[in-house]
Design a protein around this nucleic acid. Sequence first.
DNA 1: GCGGCCGGTGACCCGCCGGTAACATCCTCC
DNA 2: GGAGGATGTTACCGGCGGGTCACCGGCCGC
Lengths: 213, 213
Amino acid sequence: MQSSRPVPVRRTSRLPRGARRLQLLQAAQEVFVAHGFHAAAMDDIADRAGVSKPVLYQHFPGKRELYLALLEQQVTELTDRVREAMAGTQDNRDRVHGAVGAYFDFVDAEGGAYRLVFESDLRNDDEVRALVDRGNRACVEAVAEVIAGDTGSSPEQAHLLASGLTGLAETSARWWLAQKGTLPREEAVSLMSSLAWRGISRFPRVEGEPATG
Amino acid sequence: MQSSRPVPVRRTSRLPRGARRLQLLQAAQEVFVAHGFHAAAMDDIADRAGVSKPVLYQHFPGKRELYLALLEQQVTELTDRVREAMAGTQDNRDRVHGAVGAYFDFVDAEGGAYRLVFESDLRNDDEVRALVDRGNRACVEAVAEVIAGDTGSSPEQAHLLASGLTGLAETSARWWLAQKGTLPREEAVSLMSSLAWRGISRFPRVEGEPATG
DNA sequence: GCGGCCGGTGACCCGCCGGTAACATCCTCC
DNA sequence: GGAGGATGTTACCGGCGGGTCACCGGCCGC
């Protein structure tokens, strides 16, 4: 009963520029996450998007720039989550719980995009290194500010402590992800935030903060 | 006054096989550390050793194998340091201090070889990933054993806690290295081991261990 | 209904780099 | 003092993959 027009369902009908760009980013992310930067070929990405290679170059100047666009997204994603966790409360115990949770959520996000940030195989590229470092420093800074404010630590000490705590969160989140299934998220987050909190609370001297279980 | 024999001081006189092999490993490590696996060319390594490329292939079957040999050295180096720190005392506070110190020393070793382990850009290679993971797990395991023994934690909890502590040590060590000069090693290690110890001591329930300042 | 243009394609180019083949040199040992 | 086997060298190959060129086709406005 329908018109029997041939229209043989092109694998991916033509897309307006904006939509195509998003689809390409999606495809590129999947490939980069799965294989890393070096093992990912532009042909792979184009194939994954059901499109030919020149289309990629109509939207991005090169492989590296495509990668950088995705990386920046994820770096921003993580730093936002961490900053929100730190700014969202005045209770330091909650801050720790929230920040640890932020790392767990980031790592657990659909698609494994965290790999771009934590397992990039292009860190020898100056721009990539700068981007990743900037994200790291932003997270450390957010934590260090509170530490410096609430303890007698020097800025150098506060930053070192903060880097340790972010490392604790990142590493345990990744461990939990790898062992997924053995511990529910909430239990893992609670466990690790307890560890972090017991460590950092009442450091050198706190300005009046109850200890916690 | 000397004999005017031409003998134009060969850049590197011939070497017996064993010595050459060591020299090549050294040169390769320098190049891999400086540029990572992908950006390092076999020609670079050969040049660095003052030798031509085929010599490399007389000693190693390929670039990947050369890299793996170096990587394994460093993985072993780290796990040995950590295991020694855990086995070298019965005092858990000392264990924490020693283990944190192990990470700091590893990261601070001449040549920056730690990058092979912590910043490898070949983790998408199965064998590389397996090697790095094995090292990580060995460190986590060494720490988790003590935690599981001295607290009421389940094995899963103990391993998660241990992974967090190793992450704390690794990340803070690398931060300290990057900021080198602002804090002396002993102060940094003491600070971070205090943080870790305050966190982990008296976890769920310890079997009788004094808290520490 | 047709010209232009936007979105898309197949085929190609070429530089880099891992890996090798063929040849040179020197040291040893008899 | 010369055969033989290490040790090294020069010159080359081949393919992988990033990046581009010339071309196609259908839809839109006149």
